[in-house]
Design a protein around this nucleic acid. Structure first.
Lengths: 167, 167
DNA sequence: CGTGCGTGGTTGAATGTTCAACCAGTTGTC
DNA sequence: GACAACTGGTTGAACATTCAACCACGCACG
């Protein structure tokens, strides 16, 4: 693992010094942690479930919405994904019978995405493995205080990103 | 099978209650924060730089290695990406003159990836915008204590994931 | 030696994502 | 009420990633 990081010799000269050494280390830990975490959770989905992590998250959103229904744009916004990506994903899931599309009433531009019974069943089947993975790789390895600090910090980050994007 | 479950009552009924309400909220914040953050930083790269966030991270690894060189497998492991993915990415970057491949000496199976002068120049040009984005969307919106807690928590998560993967 | 197995890396096809162009419907404005 | 600008969504081609099959080399053991 190449976390060799040093001021002593040439190798590091290239990187502008933009955080002090301690901060660098924290930043690296953040990077590695997030990527390994989604990797680990995704792996669980591939191995044990009929839907990918992405699809699972989409189903979760639908399951939480009244009528198990959400507009395409609301889905995209809620998942922080491009509209195009959601269109394609939903198309594939529709072909598998997990969701179904229907016109939004009131606004004829809109399209509602509705979770089917089959989609619901799939979600329920996938949930335990998902939950177990999140526990195993995150919740259970942190103290409650750490988990809370993590959530609060990321809430601030999310807000900053959201604000910037909207402007 | 049109066994309508009670759609209109508790919208949340579907999701097994696997974390208490507060924890749910923290978990959601984590999810949203991480995805919006990479989205925001990526956007900066698309807009202001010649390399994507992925390619940038690869160049950073090389810049930190002696001789600006790393074996393909070391790159893959360090970046937590599949070997295949690194092969393809490096192929594209090689075509653009950012890196170059050469045989590892001592082990004729191995391939070294070397950052070129051009690649180095590109990295140096891209760095300020990258740094600014990370500061703007994360470091500057957190207190030092928050940032530290975040880094430490993710270090634990990373360790848990790594251990699981190796076994 | 030779055979078998593990490692390092590539390949190409299938799959998923992005990007830009587009269509249809809505809203505002004069 | 007509026209421009905006919103919601789709399309298809370009691009990126994954997956499984594969090749070449190294290592161990008979």
């Amino acid at each position: 693992m190449t976390t060799q990081h040093s001021d002593r010799t040439a190798p590091h000269e290239d990187k502008p010094r933009w955080l002090d050494a301690d901060q660098q280390q924290l930043w690296r830990a953040y990077l590695e942690g997030t990527v390994r975490f989604v990797e680990a959770v995704s792996r669980e989905h591939e191995e044990r479930s009929a839907v990918s992590l992405n699809e699972y998250e989409l189903l979760v959103r639908l399951s939480e919405s009244p009528g198990r229904t959400l507009r395409m744009s609301a889905l995209a916004e809620g998942l922080a994904r491009s509209r195009s990506r959601v269109t394609h994903t939903v198309a594939r899931m529709e072909a598998r019978g997990l969701v179904r599309r229907s016109a939004t009433d009131g606004d004829r531009r809109g399209v509602d995405c509705v979770m089917t019974e089959e989609g619901h069943r799939t979600l329920v089947e996938a949930a335990p493995a998902h939950v177990a993975a999140v526990r195993r790789f995150m919740v259970d390895v942190l103290t409650p205080e750490q988990f809370q600090a993590l959530g609060e910090a990321m809430a601030s980050v999310a807000r900053a990103c959201r604000e910037d994007h909207e402007i």
